[in-house]
């Protein structure tokens, strides 16, 4: 049954990609790209990667699609007819694709337990991590503990993306009369959003602190909390969202999250261990691992929340300005 679902979903994914190639209406392209992200998340669930599906559904389908829609609001929605010939790209793609298909025949068969990927480090993670780290979710163990240094790097990359976007666009506060929400007439939407936003923030907190036991964690929770505020900004307009959490405050929050993460590493060095060696944080190594993982997940969550919301603010204030002019 799982194979059959896999077959159908992958076929739908391929059809969606094919349709995106031929569509000229960019608005439709972005909507289909949202569907594409949703479908790939569904396939990740089917292939047992629930944490990845969680991330793809919230980050890929949510934030990317919203950012692309804002960009389209500024750049226009019609793609002009291409001037160069399509024959050469088609030829290149077909040749590369044929070579890659030939290459896949050397791959080990899908899903076989004896494949080389499953031989070396994976069995150790599967068998030892519940004992060494004490968490049921192996993905969180590997992400936060075994590969904690890597995750620190990823958090810094997300932070520097914020710096890049802000230095390119910047967030400017506008005079109130310039900014008019396009959805001001939708009263039903106002009421419903006000009801569900607290629920969404509650759910984000659940994802943040339940990530050790089920799917979830700092990355996902940060994005979901940011999505709640994005909904607020979409429905009620940017000035009201600025009044709740301003861009300046978010910049402080983003750097605070990264520093929180790094300070855990420094503290463990102070305690006599290596950088990010959580075993030294408490007398009992397992308890130390728990403290370390909760704090660094919190740091990741704060950074991702602040970065995603601030990027949306930057795009949104540009869109409002180009709309007013």
């Amino acid at each position: 049954m799982a194979e059959f679902i896999d077959l159908v979903l992958l076929a739908m994914l391929a059809l969606t990609a094919l349709r995106i190639i031929f569509l000229k209406d960019l608005f439709a392209v972005v909507m289909l790209f949202g569907i594409y992200s949703f479908l790939s998340a569904l396939i990740f669930v089917n292939l047992d990667a629930v944490d990845v599906a969680f991330t793809e559904a919230s980050v890929g389908a949510g934030i990317s699609t919203v950012l692309m829609l804002v960009t389209l609001a500024m750049t226009g929605r019609k793609e002009k007819q291409s001037t160069h010939s399509t024959l050469l790209p088609l030829f290149v793609v077909l040749v590369t694709g044929a070579a890659l298909i030939y290459g896949t025949l050397d791959m080990p068969p899908f899903g076989h337990p004896d494949n080389p990927v499953h031989q070396h480090v994976a069995p150790r993670y599967i068998e030892e991590s519940p004992k060494e780290v004490g968490l049921p979710n192996m993905v969180t163990s590997v992400l936060a503990s075994y590969r904690g240094f890597d995750t620190l790097g990823e958090t810094v990359v997300v932070f520097s993306a914020l710096i890049g976007v802000l230095s390119l666009l910047g967030v400017r506060r506008k005079k109130k009369k310039d900014l008019e929400s396009g959805l001001e007439t939708h009263s039903v939407l106002h009421v419903v959003s006000k009801i569900i936003i607290p629920l969404v923030i509650l759910f984000a907190l659940y994802v943040q602190f339940h990530g050790d036991f089920g799917p979830g964690g700092g990355f996902q929770a940060g994005v979901i909390a940011a999505a709640a505020f994005i909904l607020y900004a979409l429905v009620l307009g940017l000035p009201k969202a600025f009044a709740v959490v301003g861009p300046k405050f978010l910049q402080w929050m983003a750097s605070f999250g990264v520093l929180l993460y790094a300070s855990v590493g420094l503290y463990s060095m102070y305690k006599g261990g290596h950088f990010l060696d959580y075993n030294k944080l408490a007398a009992d190594p397992i308890a130390g691992q728990h403290y370390g993982i909760i704090i660094i997940e919190l740091g990741v969550g704060i950074t991702v929340f602040a970065v995603m919301l601030n990027i949306f603010y930057a795009f949104g204030s540009q869109a409002e300005r180009s709309n007013v002019q």
């Binding site: 959805l183 039903v188 939407l189 419903v192």
Partner: peptide, 10 residues
């Protein structure tokens, strides 16, 4: 039940 009718209405 809350979001789907709202989305259709909007």
């Amino acid at each position: 039940l809350v979001t789907s009718p709202t989305a259709s209405h909007a």
